[in-house]
Simulated scan of single mutants.
Amino acid sequence: MELNLVVIDDSEINLTLFRVLAERIEGVRVHGFLSSSEALAWCEQGQADVVVVDYMMPAPDGLEFISHFRQLPGMAEVPLIMVTANNLRDVRCRALEQGASDFLNKPVDKDEFLARVRNMCALRRSQRQLADRAAWLAEEVAKATAGLLERERETIVCLAKAAEYRDPETGAHILRMAHYSVLIGRQLGLAPAELEMLLEAAPMHDVGKVGTPDLILLKPGRLTPAEFMIMQQHAEQGYEILRQARSPVLAMAAVIARAHHEKWDGSGYPQGLKGEAIPLLGRIVAVADVFDALTSPRPYKQAWPLAQAREYLEQNAGRHFDPRCVEAFLAAWDEVLAIRERFQDQ
Score class of each variant (00 low, 15 high):
196 E>T: 11
257 A>R: 02
331 A>R: 11
269 Y>T: 13
166 R>W: 05
109 D>H: 12
156 I>A: 01
286 A>C: 12
231 M>S: 11
313 L>S: 06
50 V>Q: 01
162 A>L: 12
15 L>F: 04
334 D>N: 08
145 T>Y: 13
41 A>T: 11
228 F>M: 15
35 S>T: 11
10 D>T: 00
1 M>P: 12
236 E>I: 05
326 V>Q: 00
60 P>S: 06
265 D>I: 10
188 L>F: 10
113 F>M: 06
44 E>K: 14
326 V>N: 00
14 N>W: 06
238 G>I: 01
276 E>F: 08
338 A>N: 03
189 G>L: 13
86 N>C: 07
96 L>F: 07
341 E>N: 06
43 C>N: 01
131 A>P: 01
232 Q>Y: 05
184 I>W: 06
314 E>I: 09
42 W>R: 05
134 A>C: 07
240 E>S: 09
41 A>S: 14
88 L>T: 05
124 R>Q: 15
276 E>R: 14
331 A>E: 08
70 R>W: 11
191 A>I: 10
16 T>Y: 00
100 A>H: 03
17 L>I: 09
343 F>A: 02
252 M>I: 09
256 I>M: 10
201 A>W: 02
84 T>D: 02
282 G>I: 00
271 Q>M: 14
281 L>K: 03
250 L>H: 02
22 A>L: 00
297 P>R: 10
327 E>R: 06
177 M>L: 12
28 V>N: 01
269 Y>K: 08
61 D>G: 00
219 K>C: 06
174 I>R: 15
274 K>N: 08
274 K>A: 13
120 M>R: 15
311 E>A: 15
121 C>G: 03
191 A>C: 11
278 I>E: 05
309 A>F: 05
270 P>K: 10
260 H>T: 09
258 R>C: 07
126 S>V: 10
287 V>M: 04
233 Q>D: 07
214 D>F: 12
159 L>P: 01
187 Q>C: 07
336 V>T: 04
213 P>N: 03
338 A>C: 04
49 D>P: 14
275 G>S: 03
46 G>F: 10
44 E>V: 04
258 R>P: 05
211 G>E: 05
87 N>S: 14
138 A>N: 13
89 R>S: 12
264 W>T: 04
322 D>M: 03
268 G>L: 03
167 D>H: 06
149 L>S: 13
169 E>Q: 12
308 Q>V: 08
161 K>L: 12
273 L>W: 10
118 R>K: 15
109 D>N: 15
77 E>F: 08
275 G>W: 02
246 R>G: 11
